[in-house]
């Protein structure tokens, strides 16, 4: 890691519109659209807010990625040092949910799963585990290819990883649909509360991980990559994978 001298940067104020635009996109997409839909039950307003938020957020992210790939940062190669700290805080948010689960579960004693819980297919989480582990492996292969300057191979294995992640999400959607059909929704009982919250929160992390992969793939198609992006996305993906073991073992098999 080398810190470039301040003199190089001393001539002008650094600017980027990406953070501002991405943040306001997120503001419309999440707090505003959620409130419009669930608090004020106004579908039209929801669509408007999501319609404003989505393009803003995508534009912000796209700009951010393109700057990150091309510009020389103040401190080269520091992102891999920052990611572990972020993961620490991710671990604690999952812990918040798991602890709540444990408290509810242990205070229920033998009355578990509570009334209203249908038979949950235990084959599904096994398949999903296999898929997610496989995607971690394929991404590892992609990184190997990348390290050997095999861009073609990197793209191929990256696309395979994205495909596996998408199948994982497909399984989640299928399972949710099936359970909802059986009348098991988030509000059914204490177990459904936990089930949808924890699996859903994990799935949102899969979405973020996939988003990172796609943000790497698009510039890679025209030959632009950044090794720290590639590395960080991988670490994040493995983290999401590890969390899944806890989700599967606690929520399905316990």
């Amino acid at each position: 890691m080398s810190q470039s001298t301040s003199a190089e940067h001393a001539h002008h104020w650094e600017v980027s519109w990406a953070p501002l635009v991405a943040t306001f996109g997120a503001l419309f997409l999440i707090p505003f659209a959620f409130s419009a839909y669930y608090v004020y039950e106004d579908t039209f307003l929801t669509v408007i807010f999501a319609g404003i938020g989505t393009p803003l957020m995508l534009a912000g992210i796209a700009k951010w990625v393109s700057e990150g790939i091309t510009e020389k940062p103040l401190l080269e190669g520091v992102s891999p040092s920052g990611l572990p700290y972020f993961i620490v805080s991710e671990v604690f948010i999952f812990l918040g949910f798991f602890v709540s689960y444990w408290v509810i579960r242990l205070s229920a004693g033998n009355a578990w799963p509570p009334e209203g819980t249908p038979e949950i297919n235990m084959f599904m989480p096994v398949i999903m585990t296999v898929i997610l582990v496989a995607s971690s492996i394929t991404y590892h292969v992609a990184e190997e290819k990348y390290d050997h300057d095999d861009l073609e191979g990197f793209r191929k294995w990256l696309i395979i990883s994205i495909g596996l992640g998408a199948i994982f999400l497909g399984c989640t959607i299928y399972e949710y649909g099936h359970l909802l059909h059986l009348g098991f929704g988030p509000s059914t009982n204490a177990y459904s509360t936990i089930f949808y919250t924890i699996t859903g929160f994990h799935a949102s992390h899969v979405v973020i991980g996939l988003g990172m992969f796609i943000a790497i793939l698009i510039p890679a198609l025209s030959g632009k990559t950044n090794k720290y992006f590639v590395f960080c996305a991988g670490v994040y993906w493995h983290f999401v994978d590890v969390i899944w073991f806890f989700v599967a073992s606690q929520v399905y098999f316990w």
Binding site: S100, I104, S107, P114, S187, S192, T193
Partner: peptide
Amino acid sequence: LGTHFFDPSAGGD
């Protein structure tokens, strides 16, 4: 969303 984390009547706390 109608979940029951903090609702003792449905097993929450």
